[in-house]
Amino acid sequence: MPGGSVNLTCMAVGYPMPSVKWVVGVEDLTTEDDMPLGHNVLELTNIHQSTNYTCVAMSTLGIIEATAQVSVKALPKPPTSLIVMETTATSVTLTWDSGNPEPVPYYIIQYRAKASDTNFQEVDGVATTRYSIGSLSPYSEYEFRVMAVSNIGRGPPSDPVETRTGEQAPSSPPLHVQAHMLSASIMLVQWEPPEESNGQIRGYRIYYTSDPDAPLSTWQKHNTDDSRLTTISSLTTDITYSLRVLGFTSVGDGPPSDVLQVKTQHGGELLGMVNNTSVLAGSAG
């Protein structure tokens, strides 16, 4: 490991007994005055670089050599060039470069949603430099980073990359839908955005009908922008209307809210609101 120590022992046998020295490159590590006979131990400390060391044995009969290689095994370097190649509403595809001269056995991908303070989730054992992570939340910001892993351990993480997943249609209806009559023929409808908008709400659609048993596709429709209230006019007096509200993104419509019933009465202002089995009665004109 970097900063570690090792002893290299060289033994040589002959007659006459040879002198033994250690050499690195062209530099003698053993002085001529201190060359032992037949046995030489080289003590290396605080090693940070892989190096070849040569043992030289010499006598009046000649010279022989043997080389020892000291390899410094470091943690792998962080991967580089991490980029987002593709995004869908629930997945992100990442690519990166190894960042290491030696082959990397595998990688670990870490990711987390930026909107939360949760720890990184991990995908372990990734053997390629391209990978798709699924089961993500739509229209959410995520942070990703990658680490190389060797037999020494996991290296430091790459620079992070951030991206937002794509949009989907809302998966829940608008909340707290309310309606009341401003006059005998004008209805005010109010609501709150869906809990699971899955994107940017581009607008809302109010369906209303006097025949609640008819298919929703046959109900009258009233579109509005991304505000949270609207008015519907030219209603028939003295009739009960059923209404439902849905939100939509650029991808599609979300589910409609539960049926809300509002009753008008000739000459009335706020005439009544029926939601399931409960009735809220207002003042009559």
Results as ranks from 00 to 15, higher is better:
103 P>Q: 04
18 P>E: 09
90 T>Q: 06
152 I>E: 15
107 Y>C: 08
15 Y>K: 05
111 Y>M: 01
30 T>S: 07
128 T>C: 08
43 E>A: 13
150 S>K: 00
86 E>T: 09
71 S>G: 10
82 L>K: 03
66 A>T: 11
14 G>H: 11
78 P>Q: 11
40 N>G: 02
99 G>C: 08
36 P>H: 10
92 V>K: 14
73 K>R: 11
68 A>R: 14
131 Y>R: 12
73 K>C: 13
18 P>M: 03
97 D>G: 12
152 I>N: 12
133 I>F: 00
116 S>M: 00
24 V>H: 11
123 V>N: 02
134 G>Y: 05
71 S>M: 13
115 A>L: 09
31 T>V: 07
123 V>H: 05
105 P>N: 13
52 N>Q: 12
8 L>K: 15
18 P>N: 14
65 E>I: 03
85 M>N: 07
128 T>Q: 08
124 D>T: 11
9 T>R: 12
125 G>Q: 07
87 T>H: 02
135 S>K: 04
145 R>T: 09
151 N>A: 07
104 V>S: 01
81 S>I: 00
59 S>N: 15
49 Q>D: 14
133 I>S: 01
87 T>R: 09
63 I>E: 14
108 I>Y: 03
21 K>W: 07
146 V>D: 01
101 P>K: 06
75 L>M: 13
11 M>F: 03
117 D>T: 15
103 P>D: 10
44 L>M: 14
12 A>Q: 11
79 P>A: 03
80 T>C: 00
29 L>S: 10
16 P>H: 01
109 I>V: 13
97 D>T: 15
17 M>E: 12
83 I>P: 01
100 N>T: 05
43 E>S: 14
76 P>S: 04
109 I>W: 04
80 T>W: 00
13 V>F: 11
19 S>W: 08
23 V>D: 13
